[in-house]
């Protein structure tokens, strides 16, 4: 989840290139049925089906919920402390804990904390920023951000075996199969 395990040896994994998303999906299903659990796919556009086929988990929504709750609590605590404990000031005999007028700031802080959690939680869970990753060394990988689809079987996958994995990937509709050098 937080970045990937270290890989020893000269090869980080095997990268197969596909011309469209359906070929990639077929390849992932093929790989999963062969027992590969740690594969990663690279696509130029978000594809929920690919994520489902890979069988990973997404815990971000829960994190954002906690972020929002933390914001609401912070908002109320800040205002209660300010107006009741730290600097109580009687205005027209109104109660010090005048919670209805605290709602706006509580609301804004709920949104702010939840939004910050959504963005930074997403980056953290994705292990970003990470300026360099071994797949960037594969010539032609820049097409992943343009119009091509890739499937990576990393060497840390328990099923990974140079020859067997190569055979498995060759059996799919790949247009190019490359070894990812391990820096």
């Amino acid at each position: 989840m937080f970045g990937n395990p270290k890989v020893k040896g000269p090869v980080f994994g095997l990268l197969a290139e596909y011309e469209d998303g359906n070929a990639l999906l077929d390849a992932i299903r093929h790989g999963r049925s062969a027992g590969y659990e740690r594969m990663e796919a690279y696509t130029p556009l978000p594809m929920h089906e690919v994520f489902e086929a890979l069988g990973d988990k997404n815990r971000l929504p829960l994190l954002v919920l906690f972020g929002g709750i933390a914001g609401a609590v912070t908002g109320f605590a800040l205002q209660y402390w300010s107006h009741v404990i730290h600097y109580p000031y009687n205005i027209g005999g109104r109660p010090l804990n005048s919670w209805p007028s605290f709602i706006v700031v509580m609301f804004e802080l709920t949104i702010l904390f939840a939004a910050l959690t959504a963005v930074f939680g997403m980056l953290l869970l994705n292990g970003l920023p990470r300026p360099h990753h071994p797949v960037f060394d594969v010539p032609g990988f820049e097409e992943a951000s343009h119009s091509r689809f890739f499937l990576l079987v990393p060497a840390y996958d328990p099923e990974f075996h140079m020859e067997r994995t190569k055979q498995m990937l060759s059996a799919t509709a790949t247009v190019q199969l490359s070894e990812v050098p391990n820096p």
Binding site: A41, Y42, P44, M47, P131, H132
Partner: peptide
């Protein structure tokens, strides 16, 4: 930020 279009990232 090193975005590479990984499916789990997407």
């Amino acid at each position: 930020l090193g975005w590479r279009g990984a499916a789990t990232h997407w």
